[in-house]
Design a protein around this nucleic acid. Structure first.
Length: 358
DNA sequence: GCCATATACAAAATTACATCA
DNA sequence: GGTGATGTAATTTTGTATATG
């Protein structure tokens, strides 16, 4: 059985039994019970769409490109801003009121622990100029969630600690902020450490998650804004989004695999059932009408003009190669034609009857 | 218009580190 | 405290699209 699988953008919803069904634009996946057999009614196969969550936008949203030099300048500017103005930014952003859009997501890949929901991002409603994917009008929709004082405090504390330290790469001096603390490690402190790994704080991760729900990809402006907002380097934001997309795809692949597995199991069961049914029919035929097996099979046809039944004899095929058998063997639930052995059928090839003279 | 080159970006694969049981 | 499994930040490789000369 061949399976064509396409993981394109799709607007998906879950059916009641948990299967993913397509509702719109997905590049459909045709499995192919239907396509393996010529002449088999294709409507009897099944189609499904296995789509990546579009996440409210297109996969490629790069509306602008910026040169490396520009990025470098922006990075430096962000570093300056981070060092100086992050406390204010963080405080303000954490106190924003965010709204939630119902995400068209078939997979909830968000952390299981509740996090403050933010949907107002630097590129979002408050500065809509670069907003993409229809984020306008998202500000107040009645489902807004006010961040808790605890979250606000934690957020502010996090940024205060970040902001009070120079926790970023400046020239060759790379400094790393450890998770949940304001401790700073620099390359000069540990010359042997080529790659220290930063663990993002919960707040940072939550914010990135929310922004990912807005845009699964970032244009340079959004990246810079997010980096500034979270006191991260733009490169870190970029990497996070890359990894996040990879995780989403991996999870989706797992879901797709399970779905296809179930489909395969269903088809296998159906195949078994049909084979058994065929065997029973053969047995019945052999025991009841053994004589028929000696005669050529005949196809019944109805003459449209005279409405008389005509017969077309055919060489009887071995059981394993009859159309019915073929259909069953190829998982087709419907044979293309049925050859019926008729004992009384004359060996005629006449398919049309002249009207009786009288 | 066609071609070569440079640039930017994303996906995929991989590495390496941090955390946890 | 040592260890393997796991999650994930970061890096490398590769392919594609676009701009430019």
């Amino acid at each position: 059985m061949e399976l064509g699988l396409s993981l394109g953008d799709a607007t998906l919803s879950k059916s009641s039994d948990g299967f993913i069904t397509t509702t719109a634009t997905a590049t459909s996946v045709t499995t192919a019970a239907a396509s393996t057999t010529e002449g088999v009614d294709k409507s009897l196969g099944f189609c499904m769409a296995l789509g990546m969550n579009p996440l409210n936008g297109t996969t490629h949203q790069h509306t602008e490109k910026s040169h490396d030099d520009v990025l470098e300048e922006d990075d430096e500017q962000i570093l300056k801003d981070n060092q100086g103005g992050m406390i204010k930014d963080a405080t303000v952003s954490s106190q924003r009121i965010f709204s939630m859009n119902p995400p068209p997501v078939q997979l909830d890949l968000l952390p299981s622990t509740p996090v403050p929901r933010h949907t107002s991002f630097p590129w979002s409603s408050d500065n809509n100029g670069s907003s993409e994917g229809g984020s306008s009008g998202r500000g107040l929709d009645g489902r807004r969630v006010t961040t808790t004082e605890e979250a606000t405090s934690s957020f502010r504390l996090e940024f205060m600690s970040y902001g009070s330290e120079r926790g970023f790469e400046i020239g060759n001096d790379t400094v790393v902020v450890e998770r949940g603390s304001s401790r700073v490690i620099s390359d000069e402190d540990e010359p042997g450490a080529s790659r220290k790994k930063l663990r993002l704080s919960k707040e940072q991760s939550a914010y990135l998650e929310e922004s990912f729900k807005e845009h699964s990809t970032l244009n340079p402006k959004q990246k810079l804004a997010l980096a500034k907002q979270l006191n991260l380097r733009p490169r870190q934001v970029e990497v996070w989004f890359q990894n996040r997309r990879a995780r989403t795809k991996l999870k989706q692949t797992e879901v797709d695999f399970e779905y296809l597995k179930r489909c395969c199991e269903t088809l296998t069961d159906e195949n078994k059932r049909l084979r058994k049914e065929l065997q029973e029919l053969r047995t019945l035929k052999t025991t009841s009408y053994p004589f028929y097996m000696q005669l050529p099979a005949t196809t019944l046809t109805m003459c449209p003009s005279c409405e008389r039944v005509a017969t077309t004899s055919a060489t009887i095929l071995p059981p394993s190669s009859t159309n019915l058998t073929k259909a069953v063997e190829q998982n087709s639930p419907k044979p293309t034609s049925l050859i019926v052995p008729l004992s009384h059928a004359p060996p005629s090839t006449n398919t049309h009857h002249q009207p009786a003279a009288s």
